[in-house]
């Protein structure tokens, strides 16, 4: 969970960086998107690695949840979990499944149309289509709302996930752990917020 989680955290930062260029330079966004969509290394190596990373993370997450549920067959009649742990740390499965549902929407919105455009319609060499496609996605207020909501859940997931990944791998240190925790909180808030800003910016500005 930890390794795949850290890998996805790294991926998310790269994804945000590229998406964010759409706010200030449609040309840069088009160029980067075209590079990502057509470069051999990205498409043939990095993309399958990412797909595996996502699948591994969700499969292991679900397996972990099922094993952990089995470990307590009889539940407490009265339990006060809020007294000793945070909601985000206890509900990774809920925030995780919400992010997974968003991924389904993302596939429907992006990945499937992308495959169709590239391989069915034969528009592989079109270098200017990406920005208008992005704008088109953020015209619908319901979709923007769903995006915003999904990223709030992603933030909740990351609030625990970031620092938890380090703890699981044994990376704990009196001096560095407080820094990792602060960095994790900053990442969990800023990165999803960045995606939210992009969605709202294009919805409002265009």
């Amino acid at each position: 969970m930890a390794l795949s989680g850290l890998f996805l955290i790294f991926f998310l930062l790269q994804h945000l960086t590229i998406n964010f260029t759409s706010v200030f330079s449609p040309e840069t966004f088009n160029e980067l998107s075209h590079f990502m969509g057509t470069n051999f290394v990205v498409q043939a190596i990095l993309q399958p690695v990412l797909a595996f990373g996502v699948f591994f993370h969700l499969a292991m997450g679900i397996r972990l949840e099922l094993m952990n549920r089995k470990a307590r067959p009889v539940k407490y009649a009265y339990s006060k979990p809020g007294a000793n742990s945070s909601w985000v740390s206890r509900n990774m499965i809920i925030t995780g499944i919400t992010v997974l549902l968003f991924l389904a929407l993302h596939f429907y919105d992006f990945w499937i149309p992308e495959l169709k455009i590239k391989y069915v319609d034969g528009l592989m060499d079109d270098t200017t289509r990406y920005y208008p496609e992005l704008l088109h996605k953020f015209e619908n207020p319901v979709r923007v709302g769903l995006y915003v909501l999904s990223f709030v859940f992603l933030a909740l997931h990351l609030l625990h996930g970031f620092q938890s990944a380090f703890q699981s791998m044994g990376a704990r240190h009196k001096k560095y752990t407080p820094i990792i925790e602060k960095l994790g909180t900053a990442y969990a808030v800023l990165v999803p917020f960045g995606f939210i800003v992009i969605a709202i910016y294009h919805f409002v500005a265009h």
Binding site: L64, M67, N68, K70, A71, R72, P81, A83, N84, S85, S86, S89, R90, M92, H160, Q163, S164, Q167, S168, M169, G170, A171, R172
Partner: peptide, 30 residues
């Protein structure tokens, strides 16, 4: 048949001897 650790930290909060989560990280490392 014990479950797996998901780092909620509830154990360390409720521990009567205040055993730290640092020990879990050490065991994970080892």
């Amino acid at each position: 048949g014990f479950g797996n650790c998901t780092n909620t930290g509830a154990c360390a909060v409720e521990c009567p001897k205040e055993i730290s989560l640092e020990n879990i990280a050490r065991m994970n490392r080892e």
